[in-house]
Design a binder for these strands. Structure first.
Lengths: 342, 342
DNA sequence: CTGAAAGCGCTTACAG
DNA sequence: CTGAAAGCGCTTACAG
């Protein structure tokens, strides 16, 4: 039962608790020698500050909240690892709050969480980051928050993200450089902001290399595996076929591979397939899927960094901080140069 | 900025803060009328108790910790949903603590977390639940904890889990009832307790129906997709082939399907494949995989229940509480009756 | 059934 | 550069 308090440390060091507090909080105006004495006493006693006491007395709770609502588990998991690692480095802890963006009482729930926990900051993942009720509750309470990859209202609050357009652009370029000319594209869900950004990158890459986007090879999907399957069937059941299909997420790409299978088209020899997101399934499926890895871990840890440093709490020159992280293009076995027509 | 405190509520209700505290904590000995007056004042003021203050003054922190180390994201995600929902129902919150069971300073890290946060309880997922250093740190601090599906030392602490043997037994029975007689089995990683339990269920089901387990159809896997692939190749490249293969987890089952594909065996017509775990990939792959769904959400919420009710804190008749939850057998498209030899 | 006092372990002003 | 006092918002004994 460790009941070592700041008083014990002060007694052992022969100093006041205020001085101990100063050292522990890295405040200035402490003599080197005094500092060492405190640190040594704390170590000897294995002192651990009581978060509740710090929180009650001070302005900080050392708690950061992560709000999410059912995006993919793998996404949430990476977010948590990134956020937790940044938090731990500064003595913060992460509380997770699954919320239901469909719920009527969402605003009340969020308000309750914020005020009981006195969170120092909140990280919002899609689609929670685009929910007006959540943002309002946060703003009303004065709780700093950072949005990850928001879709709408980009200037409303601090955010971290990646450049979807450039990523789609580079993936497309990879396909073109392999020799593909006829490339199909499957759009994501029309409600998601990323859908247009990714398509834009695809079109820009094609255009930049003097290739035309064949409208018969572009279909509207919904980000689901089934929609990828349906779109791929529609594309591949035409007299003219593309030699590659770029689906704007991995789930749809898996559907494309299934459709190719059904049509006895072998991947990648007869059809190259590329996805986006680098989900776990991408490296489980056969052949392994070429895809774009989002910097999820880094985005989450950057979000916490902004919260902990309090950069997320202040506007600079009328705008909120906004940070784009580097993605990664991962070429695996589902793509190869097109087989020359025999 | 909501700064409504218990004092405000007391003032509005014309009562002392002690009485307000009694009502809010559901303590006995309060007149019905008084209770109503407090509740109304609290509602009118939109009062939210300050967790830090409650925690500092009282014996509880209203914080439950979830420790995990890199099992599958989908597993962790379900655990979190189950745990968080049970916590929220009682005004508790969940902090997540990714830990590294390979780390040298694991014990120090765990001790630090426990004492700064003053956790009311901890939920441990595999493999953290089998790490002696973590258990020791928890025990030394007197923090109640519940283990989810532990492998070793089952009597050491409270735990929740499922009956792996019976689940494997029932899945095997399903295969047999479809008409399969020659059934292959791929074992899990030798270090995992579930490996033997699942195999036991398989053998018992075969035996109970008077079928023999052909040793040539049983291979040692490692729970990885690649190991499933290798084992399946070994099994299927023999003169005699089983008509069904039961892999003891989904990852290996996906490897089996890939191997079948490579050998031009169509699933399920020429080979039925079953898995275990109901991972997301199981319902993404084509054909959808028949598998066993672990009651992960329920296990996690039961674990929190035990912590919140404090049942996890006391031994009864020399043993810790232990709870087995119901699993679910999910038959999808990767299994069907064997095709009669032509 | 209700309340006045003390105290949980820290940090915040304020002195010196 | 260091410290004594007050107080954060609750709950814990203890009275009545």
């Amino acid at each position: 039962m460790s009941a070592v308090t700041i008083t014990d440390v002060a007694a052992r060091a022969g100093l006041s608790i205020k001085t101990v507090s100063r050292v522990l909080n890295n405040e200035p105006n402490v003599r080197e020698k005094t500092r060492d004495r405190v640190l040594e006493a704390a170590r000897a006693l294995d002192y651990q500050p009581n978060l509740s006491a710090r929180s009650l007395a001070g302005a900080r709770s050392f708690l950061i909240g992560l709000f999410f609502d059912n995006p993919s588990p793998a996404y949430v998991y990476d977010v948590q690892l990134g956020a937790a690692s940044r938090c731990r480095a500064s003595g913060y802890h992460l509380t997770i709050e699954p919320v239901d963006t469909q719920a009527d009482d969402l605003e009340r729930v969020v308000r309750g969480i914020i005020s009981t926990l006195r969170l120092d900051g909140v990280v919002l993942t899609p689609p929670v980051c685009d929910d007006d009720r959540v943002l309002r509750a946060l703003e009303a309470s004065g709780t700093p928050y950072v949005r990850m990859s928001p879709d709408r209202d980009l200037g409303r609050a601090p955010r971290v993200g990646m450049d979807d357009t450039r990523a789609a652009y580079e993936m497309t370029l990879n396909l073109i450089d392999m020799g593909h000319v006829a490339i199909g594209f499957i759009l994501g869900h029309p409600d998601h902001g990323a859908t247009n950004l990714r398509y834009k990158g695809f079109v820009e890459a094609m255009t930049s290399r003097g290739l035309v986007v064949n409208p018969a090879f572009v279909k509207q999907g919904l980000f689901s595996s089934q929609s990828g399957f349906d779109c791929a069937e529609a594309i591949l059941n035409q007299p003219q076929r593309p030699t590659a299909i770029f689906a704007s997420n991995d789930d749809m790409a898996l559907g494309v591979m299934a459709a190719a299978n059904r049509l006895k088209l072998s991947v990648p020899d007869q059809l190259s397939v590329a996805g986006f997101d680098n989900t776990p399934a991408a490296s489980t499926v056969w052949p392994h899927l070429s895809t774009v890895a989002q910097p999820i871990f880094n985005m989450a840890s950057a979000a916490c960094e902004l919260l902990i440093s309090r950069e997320a709490a202040v506007m600079v020159e009328g705008t909120w901080v906004s940070q784009l992280m580097d993605f990664e293009i991962i070429m695996r076995d589902s793509t190869c140069p097109p087989t020359p027509a025999l």
